[in-house]
Design a protein around this nucleic acid. Structure first.
Lengths: 343, 343
DNA sequence: TTGCCTAAATCAAACGGTTTAGGATAAAAA
DNA sequence: TTTTTATCCTAAACCGTTTGATTTAGGCAA
């Protein structure tokens, strides 16, 4: 383990100068700077994280706070953020806080206690409650830096990366319309429960409106974010006298549930019914049929969030930014032209 | 931020005693110990990780080294390990090293340089090459502690947690046999590429042997660990004059590929064909049909690995342990009785 | 020459714990 | 009573950096 002192000796300078060479290059003469850096590189010197953190009260560790790393959605964001941080010489500590609010707060407080001052937060698919938001707000006031990957938290005075969920939903509807569908149903989340849920539903509404199609009450089913909801939604729709020819599901997982129900009922996709979802699952492409979906490059979103954070660390007083990532309509097997007798 | 000094003052002892109370309780009188601990708890004292690490050269940080956190298999193990470590007051740093061997080595070296001395390693689904194994070997010699979640690394003198892959494969074959299947095919990985691949194949062989069923060359297809291989395997089997009535796939992802091919060919599952896989995907349950599979509690495996590591940290000279986790046969929708004309 | 200013490099004191060596006290042994 | 031993506790050094204060060395004007 080469320390700063050894480097200093070898370069004929004091440890302080070596430190400055790394942290405040401007304070060091050009000549010396080069020499020190060269020696450090040669000796493969890497500043000790502990010592650095202890003294400077800045850890170089950025916490990537996620709700459930087991979910592909989350994992991709986390990976993207971690990669980006690593590239900037920082360590991204992926922290799994679950969705119990007490637990979340305890985690955040512990991280703060440990001197971690920078956070990438990706709460989805869960949400933070009022108290937790209060804590976050406090932390921001205390000078911590945070960058959110979430629609929910867009109101905080911090950097946020999100995507045009509403536009995405609209483009799904338009894709279906182009295939001749008019009886398009939607499986949504409770509107007051999730901003993402609302956005997607509004997009559906808007899409239908633009096309001059009516939104029928019985074509909107409200469920929760799971497979089972898809199954129930399917049952609901098929029980209608005039059942839809296409279904937009709030999430891939719900779409998978619908597909499963169709499988059991012998309903052919896309011959009898078209289905689309919103990309959360890597697996969507491996379903049978493979799911048409609106995809977001989650890894890129993680990267962006980390990048915003890094910028902020350098320039703390920059006004908060909102970054919109592009979505992409991924057409796969689950959508096809409407059956003539259905339209 | 309450420091050890404040606690010391409040408890009328020296900082050293507080430190001892936490780290070497036996060195402290019963009376004092209780008082100190009580005061510490009351003040919500948490030792500063940096300071602790700096002085003691033990970080309290355990690196959880995975190849790709985006894969559900990996994420579950990582989560389990992290939870367990957290419970023991340590921080589990999930580190995504990818599968480029140079990168892996660089990562490991960096972690070492940072004073991290304890590792949970879960390389799957990738492997470490000879050079990387050499480095790991060195690190073990240098006194680092490692705990592996992998069949591949069972030969190292370190703790390993694995599962009875061979038995699992056998139980799949037996399940199919009980349903009347005799023409059972297998999709395997190249045998020299992965220990897991070999184990599962051997289990298939053994299962067939016990049942007195022949293993036909044309019923064994060799592929790689992806969806596409499943598709190709399906095509191969269906081209046979006497095609199998059941397929065992090395992995759920391959099984998903087979299912997809059947979907397109109009082959009904399980009426015409039964399919089973090995649990790697959370999504297996969301396929249509839901996949019968051999499941392992990956989170538990992660927990176990962390637990072994923690034990070793306390007792460095314990002989290395191998821990076998139980598997579970999860019967879902993709298997059913053989068609009379098929047997 | 003297004085003043600036830039570059150094010094020494933290940061918040752990560890080592040793001091005080009390109990046990001589 | 004195010496030894064991038990608790403490003072001070130390881990590897950073950081304000301080020194040193030049450059330039007066």
């Amino acid at each position: 383990m080469t320390t700063i002192i050894e480097v200093a000796k070898r370069a004929n300078v004091s440890p302080a100068t070596v430190s400055n060479a790394f942290n405040k290059p401007s304070r060091v003469g050009k000549e010396t700077l080069e020499r020190v850096l060269a020696v450090a590189a040669e000796m493969k010197f890497q500043p000790n994280l502990m010592a650095h953190g202890l003294r400077s009260q800045k850890t170089g560790i950025v916490a990537i706070v996620v709700s459930d790393i087991r979910i592909a959605y989350t994992a991709q964001i986390a990976k993207g953020a971690q990669d980006q941080l690593k590239q900037a010489g920082k360590i991204g500590l992926i922290t799994n806080v679950g969705h119990d609010q007490e637990n979340i707060k305890a985690h955040l407080r512990e991280l703060r206690q440990q001197g971690i001052r920078a956070f990438v937060m990706a709460p989805a698919p869960y949400r933070y409650d009022e108290e937790t938001r209060e804590l976050i707000s406090q932390m921001l006031d205390d000078g911590m830096h945070m960058s959110f990957v979430s629609n929910e938290l867009a109101s905080f005075p911090a950097d946020v990366v999100l995507w045009q969920a509403q536009e995405g939903a609209k483009s799904l509807v338009q894709h279906l319309a182009k295939l001749g569908h008019e009886k398009i149903a939607f499986v949504r989340l409770p509107l007051n429960k999730s901003t993402a849920g609302l956005k997607r539903y509004l997009g559906y509404q808007e899409g239908m409106h633009v096309l001059g199609l009516p939104i029928r009450d019985e074509y909107v089913f409200e469920g929760t974010l799971d497979f089972e909801s898809g199954v129930r939604a399917a049952d609901h729709f098929f029980r209608l006298l005039d059942s839809p020819s296409a279904i937009v599901a709030h999430d891939d997982l719900m779409a998978a549930g619908i597909i499963n129900r169709c499988y059991h009922l012998g309903i052919r996709i896309p011959a009898d019914l078209s289905i689309v979802g919103f990309s959360s699952l890597d697996m969507a492409q491996h379903l049978s049929p493979a799911l048409t979906t609106v995809g977001i490059n989650l890894e890129m979103m993680g990267k962006s969030a980390a990048e915003l954070l890094l910028q902020r660390l350098n320039e703390p007083d920059k006004p908060p930014q909102k970054l919109f990532n592009d979505y992409e309509l991924i057409i796969r097997e689950s959508t096809g032209p409407v059956r003539p007798d259905q339209s």
